[in-house]
Design a binder for these strands. Structure first.
Lengths: 151, 151
DNA sequence: CAGCAAAGATTGATGGGATCAAATATCTAG
DNA sequence: CTAGATATTTGATCCCATCAATCTTTGCTG
């Protein structure tokens, strides 16, 4: 079964085993053709690199640097630079935690909150492929994913 | 509804509208907590950066540089370096297209094919959250996503 | 209390990636 | 043949990832 057109899919299903594997392959395809490009595009409009955008999204509540690093699956020292640049732009502030003066809590400024809001809204927009599903399929999809994620 | 634990979710559902939006938010959460980390980890084992891995996966058939660039949503000039490094490692070859000597077709070497195979297999493995679903949910999920992607 | 190991964050070095402008080689139309 | 378009490359600049080393602060232990 050769793929159609320009093969926009990542030829993922070839290696998938079982229904879960196939579903996962299709989901990743959706993400790579829709999700990631949009994330990058929206980030560019707001002049945010993907890691900066990611960090901003995680900051709906103040967090220590180390927690950010863990959540972003990257090294501690990496976060320093990302936060540096966000701080220079006034989107973020470093607060010293009073219970432990080693840790710095990163908090959004008002401007940062505004940008985060816009970013989140744009990213939450589902791709057309999902919007085009029947309402019943949409609900079923949501319900199954809720069960998967354990919500 | 404050999130539980360390808030591994990206607080995505707050901005989602409608079932499709919620489903999308859940899918992205799955991707960010499972998919991307695994992609990066598997890449590290094989000593491939994420873009190198991505490019390799797209090369199940020889492609011109420009086509790779379009598929990876990046600038043409970007691909040059990525392919340079893959070529230095002997995973890839540049072939001059005979119908147009401007274009270079990128083809996997045998070693490249082996690596690509291992990468693809590892990535195709669905996250536990999906494996844990009932077989019926798994099938339904796959079917809905097939409809969405239009397969 | 003194000393010391561990934890949180930063710095510096190195290499890869994104983006943009400019250059090169080739093709195609007229 | 020539002008313009196309595919790729180069160079410059910035950002990100990773690792080792450093600094401060904490908490433990004798």
């Amino acid at each position: 079964m050769p793929s159609k057109g320009g093969d926009p899919g990542l030829e993922l299903t070839r290696y998938a085993e079982g229904p879960a594997g196939e579903a996962w392959a299709l989901a990743m395809r959706l993400f790579f053709t829709s999700g990631k490009p949009r994330f990058v595009a929206v980030g560019q409009e707001l002049d945010l690199s993907p890691p900066q955008g990611h960090a901003l999204r995680l900051l709906h509540a103040p967090r220590p640097m180390g927690e950010l690093a863990r959540m972003m699956h990257c090294d501690n020292s990496n976060i320093t630079g990302i936060i540096d640049r966000l701080e220079e732009r006034g989107l973020v502030r470093r607060l010293v935690a009073e219970h432990d003066r080693r840790v710095k809590l990163i908090a959004l400024t008002e401007e940062g909150e505004r940008i985060r809001e816009r970013l989140s809204r744009a990213i939450a927009q589902p791709p057309e492929a999902l919007e085009a599903l029947s309402p019943s399929d949409q609900r079923t999809l949501r319900d199954i994913l809720r069960r998967a994620v354990g919500e």
